[in-house]
Design a binder for these strands. Structure first.
Lengths: 150, 150
DNA sequence: CATATATCAGCGAGACTGACATAT
DNA sequence: CATATGTCAGTCTCGCTGATATAT
């Protein structure tokens, strides 16, 4: 199997990792374009949504939930805070932590982004039927492992 | 639907684009780790494989096949050429073009990488049965659009 | 002239690293 | 002391932009 001279790969394009990468790139592009309408980058939106969902939450915890490096959370939150979408205040129960909270304006932006992001995803998966979309999500969820599914 | 105050997104983690992005990142990591054994980056490997498959081929054509910017092909091929895996020679029929060709050593490296990449993909999709893998590829292929399927 | 190819220089986003201060 | 958190500075890859030279 490691003999040289064999037809090597057919093409890398038949590798699942390649195909899933292309689909991910397409999806990222569509969502990024949609969110630009609200002036948000992909990661900024993810952080904003996670902050809204997990209530007042520490930066490191946000990083763990989204698999974002805690060091990168600093600049992400600086930007969101500068836009007035979140606030940072010291956590009285553990003064090492910043309690991050969504503002009212943050919730408004988020509601609009939800529509935009869903529309982008419908465009991404438009060729699939509802049942197929659900199946794709199920399969991807199992591949990903950690609790994420349809 | 754009009313503020609504539960915003459940979580972005339920968006297909997010899930497919996470799976892609996992796959990229696994394959990158595997290919590092042969000293190749992901894109270098893709270019090498495409060069082997499409015979002597112009740089711009490689870029089109792999959706890689032609400007980035320069450095990618510089590296592959420096490793002795491909050669660049002027195309007599159109002297604007470089005819890129795999070397014998390139084919050997590629054969070993094929094994490594396949192993990484089996690790990625390990939780799925054969039938499910095929189904996932079918669905992703349809979402991606351009000719790519299992 | 316009077009295509290849090269070079640079930017920005994402995912990292190391070093450091502070609080537990 | 070790650990966790947050901040700052810098690196690297990847996907782009612009400008340039050459060939068609």
């Amino acid at each position: 199997m490691t003999q040289p001279g064999l037809p090597p790969l057919q093409h890398i394009q038949s590798l699942p990792s390649w195909l899933v990468g292309r689909v991910a790139a397409k999806g990222r592009g569509l969502v990024a374009e949609a969110l630009a309408e609200e002036g948000l980058k992909l990661m900024q939106h993810a952080v904003l949504a996670a902050t809204a969902e997990y209530g007042p939450v520490a930066q490191a915890e946000l990083g763990r939930r989204l698999e974002v490096d805690p060091k990168d959370m600093v600049m992400l939150l600086n930007h969101l805070q500068g836009m007035g979408l979140v606030t940072r205040s010291p956590d009285p129960s553990d003064r090492r932590k910043n309690a991050v909270t969504v503002t009212a304006e943050g919730l408004e932006v988020l509601a609009r982004c939800a529509v935009l992001a869903e529309r982008a995803n419908e465009e991404l998966l438009g060729v699939l039927g509802e049942e197929e979309k659900a199946q794709l999500m199920r399969l991807l969820g199992r591949v990903y492992g950690p609790g994420a599914a349809g």
